[in-house]
Computed example of a mutant assay.
Amino acid sequence: MKLVIIPTYNEKDNIEQLLSLVYSYVPDIHVLVVDDGSPDGTGDLIESLMAGEHKGRLFVLKRAGKLGLGTAYIAGFKWALDREYQFIFEMDADFSHNPKYLPKFLDAIQNCDVVLGSRYVAGGGVTNWSLIRRFISLGGSLYSRIILNMPFHDLTGGFKCFRRAVLETINLDDVKSNGYSFQIEMTYRAFLLAFTIKEVPIVFEERAEGQSKMSSSIFREAVLMVWKLRAAKDNLKIAKAKTNKR
């Protein structure tokens, strides 16, 4: 069984079309929307869609407020592990992650444990970004790659697929990052635990609606968290969960 986890906050204008595209590429996939109390009614819209054409393959976790990207994914991972899902995806709600790549991820995950959607390998890229934003993004991945001694080119991207065993092994309650550094931390923990990781090229498309969630505080967290992860390397190697199942 396959599950895509999509965190949302005020994505009512995007989510219905995104779901249609996801199901057009992988009809038997399930989707879990983790909504952080969207004032625009995103969570309520999902509930109505659950009762209609997407019944049985669309689900929602409605949270009390804007609690952060990392905690949204952790909640989604735990929800997935309570069920029988074998392949668990992360994906944004704003069309920056094109659902057309989902079948490629599924092909790749047959021969590895984690798939990273990568903007910075051959065939990957970004659209409609300024030179400054490209520099920050490339620099962030290079910075993390050097400090953490990982061979991967795109460490800050949020389009991923995990085998169930990876999320069962990582101690999810011990994951501390909550912004974009969450993506770095999850990959680093999988890397230290000797899971096989593969990068698949994607083209990241600038969101068509709404505003970017990047902020100075999120950027600072990522800069500092990389050093904290490096300092905790030996502990992270053995920090396997007793079980993430409930």
Score class of each variant (00 low, 15 high):
161 C>M: 09
166 V>P: 01
165 A>H: 00
163 R>A: 03
152 F>K: 05
131 L>E: 14
136 I>S: 12
160 K>I: 05
131 L>W: 11
125 G>C: 01
129 W>V: 11
137 S>D: 15
155 L>R: 06
124 G>K: 05
129 W>G: 11
139 G>D: 11
136 I>W: 11
131 L>F: 07
124 G>D: 10
143 Y>T: 01
128 N>W: 07
166 V>K: 00
126 V>I: 13
128 N>Y: 07
128 N>C: 11
161 C>G: 12
163 R>H: 07
161 C>N: 06
126 V>Q: 08
142 L>R: 01
156 T>L: 13
132 I>F: 15
154 D>K: 06
146 I>Q: 04
131 L>V: 13
160 K>C: 05
121 V>W: 12
126 V>H: 12
157 G>V: 04
156 T>H: 09
157 G>D: 05
132 I>A: 15
160 K>P: 07
139 G>H: 05
149 N>G: 02
154 D>T: 12
151 P>R: 14
146 I>F: 05
157 G>S: 12
147 I>Q: 04
164 R>I: 02
164 R>Q: 02
138 L>M: 05
124 G>L: 04
129 W>P: 09
138 L>W: 10
129 W>N: 14
138 L>C: 04
159 F>M: 10
166 V>L: 03
136 I>V: 12
146 I>P: 04
154 D>Y: 05
130 S>N: 06
129 W>E: 15
123 G>D: 07
128 N>I: 02
144 S>F: 13
167 L>I: 02
153 H>K: 14
164 R>C: 00
158 G>Y: 02
148 L>I: 07
155 L>E: 06
143 Y>P: 03
144 S>D: 12
144 S>C: 15
152 F>D: 06
150 M>T: 15
140 G>D: 10
135 F>N: 08
131 L>N: 14
141 S>C: 05
152 F>G: 08
163 R>D: 04
134 R>T: 10
130 S>M: 08
149 N>Y: 00
129 W>F: 15
123 G>H: 07
152 F>M: 08
140 G>F: 10
153 H>G: 10
147 I>M: 02
164 R>T: 01
158 G>S: 14
162 F>N: 00
142 L>C: 00
149 N>F: 00
159 F>A: 08
144 S>Y: 13
154 D>L: 05
152 F>N: 09
127 T>Y: 06
151 P>H: 10
138 L>F: 10
127 T>N: 10
131 L>H: 11
146 I>S: 02
131 L>P: 12
157 G>T: 05
129 W>R: 14
139 G>I: 05
142 L>W: 00
131 L>Y: 13
147 I>T: 03
132 I>L: 15
144 S>N: 14
135 F>L: 09
139 G>C: 03
134 R>P: 06
161 C>K: 06
125 G>L: 01
140 G>N: 09
152 F>R: 09
157 G>Y: 02
165 A>Q: 03
147 I>V: 08
133 R>L: 11
157 G>Q: 11
159 F>H: 07
134 R>L: 13
139 G>V: 12
150 M>L: 10
147 I>P: 08
156 T>F: 09
123 G>M: 06
155 L>M: 08
166 V>G: 01
126 V>A: 08
143 Y>M: 05
129 W>K: 15
133 R>G: 14
